[in-house]
């Protein structure tokens, strides 16, 4: 298997996923893990595609549908592959009045604690006049919850509300 990371971004409209994946299916490609999300009115796709042939062939397969849908296309050959999941053991939730630097401050302190971010979702909600930033992070670290809480506690002075909780994944 030779995986490529296919990135597609463009103005959201119904039918993007169906048309893109149909073109890949007809081209004989296999899909792996993917993240597809509407961000700020755009639709974004990051998808592992088994590019059995060449990068050029995959690009030629997807370019017509991308052009038709107004999507910008990017391809990267990648190392790694499927079945490399890591299970997060901590979750960090953040919210506060939106301002520059929240993500950098929070993730900077996490990085100092050896925290490996596996997933990060963020959104700006509230209203135009009073925007609120909400972020949830899931990741893995050997550090204790006390260490993380102490590190992130430094943000209280900045009126950023941060809550750390351990994730005990239930296997049953």
């Amino acid at each position: 298997m030779k995986w490529q990371m296919l990135t597609l971004v463009g103005e959201d409209q119904p039918g993007i996923v169906a048309q893109v994946t149909d073109a890949l299916f007809r081209g004989g490609y296999t899909l792996g893990e993917a993240s597809m999300l509407r961000l700020g009115g755009n639709f974004t796709i990051m998808m592992m595609v088994d590019g059995g042939q060449s990068e050029q062939a995959l690009s030629a397969c997807i370019a017509p549908v991308a052009e038709k849908l107004g999507l910008r296309l990017h391809l990267d050959p990648i190392h790694g592959g499927l079945h490399q999941h890591r299970v997060p053991n901590f979750q960090v939730r953040v919210n506060g009045a939106d301002r520059a630097g929240i993500v950098a401050q929070v993730t900077g302190l996490l990085a100092e604690s050896g925290f490996n971010i596996l997933e990060l979702d963020s959104d700006v909600v509230g209203s135009q006049d009073d925007p609120v930033y909400i972020m949830t992070i899931q990741g893995y670290t050997e550090a204790t919850i006390e260490t993380l809480e102490t590190a992130l506690g430094r943000l209280e002075a900045d009126e950023i509300d941060v809550h750390v909780s351990a994730i005990e994944t239930l296997i049953g």
Binding site: V87, I167, E168, T169, L170, I171, G172
Partner: peptide
């Protein structure tokens, strides 16, 4: 809300 996995569903949580 909580995270789960399963002996019958390997490699996924």
């Amino acid at each position: 809300l909580g995270r789960e996995g399963c002996l019958s569903v390997p490699d996924y949580t």
